[in-house]
């Protein structure tokens, strides 16, 4: 799914990376726990989260993600935006909660990460 399509579905604001909205994401991960993102997410995914700190951006970078969506109207600080800009990440912000955001993307064809087996 193109990031521009996600922006439309989530009625999201683009906080940085406007020039990269044409990129594609192939799966999504909705999570506030970065430990789990690092352990379970697939690459080229979009990260949807309500957690706001610089480690969200670094976690996304480590996982080769190219887009972060902050849900529940969370507003990242300038340090977060600056770090994302440096590394050419797109940051979106939506007023929708995590569950609704994930549901919208999923029902419009964006897959999740594979099931996790113990």
């Amino acid at each position: 799914m193109k990031i521009s399509k996600m922006q439309e579905l989530l009625e999201a604001k683009v906080l940085c990376g406007e020039e990269f909205l044409g990129r594609h994401v192939y799966s999504a991960c909705g999570c506030d726990l970065m430990s789990d993102v690092l352990a379970f997410a697939k690459d080229q995914a979009v990260l949807l989260t309500g957690l706001v700190n610089t480690q969200v951006v670094r976690t996304a970078l480590m996982m080769d993600m190219n887009c972060i969506v902050f849900v529940r109207s969370k507003k990242p600080g300038d340090d977060i935006i600056k770090l994302a800009e440096e590394h050419e990440l797109v940051i979106l912000s939506t007023d929708k909660p995590l569950y609704v955001s994930c549901g919208l993307l999923y029902t419009n064809g964006l897959a999740g990460s594979k099931e996790v087996k113990k």
Binding site: L33, S35, D36, N53, V56
Partner: peptide
């Protein structure tokens, strides 16, 4: 609360 410390590291 910062998103870490889940015992997965």
């Amino acid at each position: 609360s910062l998103g870490f410390g889940a015992g997965m590291g």
